[in-house]
Design a protein around this nucleic acid. Structure first.
Length: 506
RNA sequence: GGCCCGUUCGUCUAGGGGUUAGGACGUUAGAUUUUCAUUCUAGAAACAGGGGUUCGAUUCCCCUACGGGCUACCA
């Protein structure tokens, strides 16, 4: 690695929500940058007017915010290489494209999209390149005079790279090692579109150069266009400054085949986007990990271990640990199928690991959204610490915590009724008296009182525990019953027993 | 079709010329929990196939198969 400052960039196009794979690319960029005390830049690649979606850029920003992966330079924080939106850099690219034309490494092409479409249909394996370009309308096949005329008449045209014949371009990928391509196999990619906007190919090279990017991470789907980019770096005379590349393995569908897509999430019932994405045009809402109840720590953790490991058995990592331990040599080459079950496991682990305090605001919101008012935050914290080990997703806190704040709405009566007896009614009536007289109100003391009375009445404790649970909780779940009684307090405990007693006896 | 990349339990993966091929999720069985979950213990479960190289290959090489990606004036 050279001694130049590490600068990496995440360069999404604002066309919709941020996909799992996108966030993982951000993560790896971020980890690499922070590990090497470098800069992490966010650059918006909005060169396609047609696919631009309102709100997508804000979404990306919010998403990075949620994950805690904050860029050092971006359209909003700015920096020495602004602007960071390619649409605002439009004028820059033309100059370089023209330069390539002058040097003979690129040329004007006047073919209409329809003509090309026609060719692709009629000629098997049609490629705009070596074989066919002289038969098409461009500044290579036309005379200088004809070209000037077309240009003067403002004929719509693009600029294409002229792929050289019979060359082998190769480079060293940080993940894959040596990769090489035959130039004859690559077509003359469009560099500058008819609307004057650059394509990704030109823009990424120009901006990576201008923004002094040292290492470039992107998905494996970009590997086939690497030779184009490589040649561009060379032709523009920047080869010495070319970033080192790393093509990340893809995240695949859990079942069938192919890249994981938004559709798969809907089909298989799990999120694919980081956060909810609402498409104003279609009115469609695509669910996200955040809203489903994932902690950002867990989300990042599961993404990090999808294609990377530290060589030990450790699976749970904090962001700081990831920064410390991350290394590209340990990124795997093969694509990984996404496993939502394991994703949930990561979240459960993080809910257990994290301090109750960290969960307070989130749980409060969940409860309040369900109409439960949370006045006492210390009490909430106690409740959270009692039940957090039983929650996989944040919304699970509703079921696990609601009964600490209000009487059960529903009772699992069927678990009690068949074995209900008058003796039990008598027991609980006596219990109410005993509890009323209880001085100290703590779980251990309550349990002693309860068991003593049971023995006195000659009823098996086991016969009484479940009814008491149903009385306090409403169902067969939750922590130790006496812990619950202690927390909800004397008055509430007695109230619930009395109310349930009426229900059981009606 | 062409080009490129890849291939260890169902899934994520560790390992690496000589190992009882390790871990995790999930799954199965059991223990603990007078509920449920947690936790704990145990079990089933993998080197795609064929050729080389080698004393020895799952590991290195080649081929095949399979999987994936790209093949737009999209990124």
């Amino acid at each position: 690695m050279s001694d130049k400052k590490v600068r990496v960039r995440f360069a999404p196009s604002p066309t919709g929500g941020l996909h799992l794979g996108g966030v993982r690319t951000v993560l790896f960029n971020y980890l690499f940058a922070k590990k090497h005390k470098g800069d992490f830049i966010l650059r918006i690649e909005d060169t396609d007017q047609n696919r631009y979606v309102e709100g997508a850029e804000t979404y990306i920003l919010d998403c990075l915010q949620w994950c805690g992966l904050i860029p050092d330079e971006s359209p909003v924080v700015s920096g020495p290489f602004a602007p960071y939106r390619q649409s605002e850099r439009k004028a820059i690219y033309r100059e370089y494209a023209e330069r390539l034309v002058m040097q003979g490494h690129a040329y004007y092409a006047f073919d209409t999209p329809e003509e090309l479409e026609q060719n692709r249909k009629e000629i098997p394996n049609f490629q705009y390149g070596q074989v066919y370009r002289m038969g098409l309308r461009n500044s290579l096949s036309l005379t200088e005079h004809e070209v000037d005329q077309l240009l003067d008449a403002k004929t719509p045209h693009v600029i294409r790279i002229k792929m050289p014949a019979d060359e082998r371009v190769s480079f060293n990928d940080m993940i894959r090692g040596h990769v090489s391509f035959e130039t004859n196999q690559v077509d003359d990619k469009v560099l500058l579109k008819a609307d004057g906007m650059p394509t990704y190919h030109l823009a990424v090279v120009v901006d990576d150069y201008l923004m002094k990017i040292s290492h470039a991470f992107r998905g494996e789907e970009w590997l086939p266009s690497a030779p184009v980019h490589l040649l561009l770096w060379e032709y523009l005379g920047w080869k010495a400054d070319m970033p080192q590349w790393a093509h990340l393995p893809l995240i695949l569908k859990p079942d069938g085949h192919g890249k994981l897509s938004k559709r798969d999430g809907a089909r298989l019932g799990f999120p694919v986007y980081a956060m909810n994405w609402f498409d104003a045009r279609t009115g469609e809402l695509t669910p996200g990990f955040r809203e489903l109840g994932f902690l950002p720590e867990a989300f990042l953790n599961l993404l990090a271990t999808l294609g990377w490991n530290d060589g030990t058995d450790q699976e749970i990592f904090t962001l700081d640990e990831l920064i410390e331990k991350f290394s590209l040599e340990r990124v795997s080459k093969a694509g990984a199928k996404f496993d939502f079950e394991k994703a949930k496991w990561f979240n459960a682990e993080w809910i257990k690991k994290v301090k109750g305090e960290r969960l307070k605001e989130k749980v409060k919101t969940i409860l309040e959204d369900k109409g439960i008012s949370v006045a006492d935050e210390d009490y909430l914290l106690k409740v959270i610490n009692k039940v957090k080990d039983r929650c996989v997703l944040l919304p699970d806190f509703y079921q696990q915590a609601a009964y600490f704040f209000e009487q059960p709405k529903e009772y699992d009566i069927n678990s009690v009724k068949p074995k209900w007896t008058d003796a039990k009614t008598e027991f609980f009536n006596l219990l109410v008296d005993k509890l009323s007289a209880e001085k100290a109100w703590d779980a251990a003391g309550l349990e002693i009182t309860f068991k003593a009375l049971a023995e006195d009445k000659a009823i098996k404790v086991g016969e009484l525990m479940l009814p008491l649970r149903i009385m306090l909780v409403g169902g067969k779940f939750g922590p130790h019953v006496f812990d619950i009684a202690e927390l909800i307090g004397k008055v509430e405990t007695i109230k619930r027993i009395q109310k349930a007693l009426e229900l059981f006896n009606s």
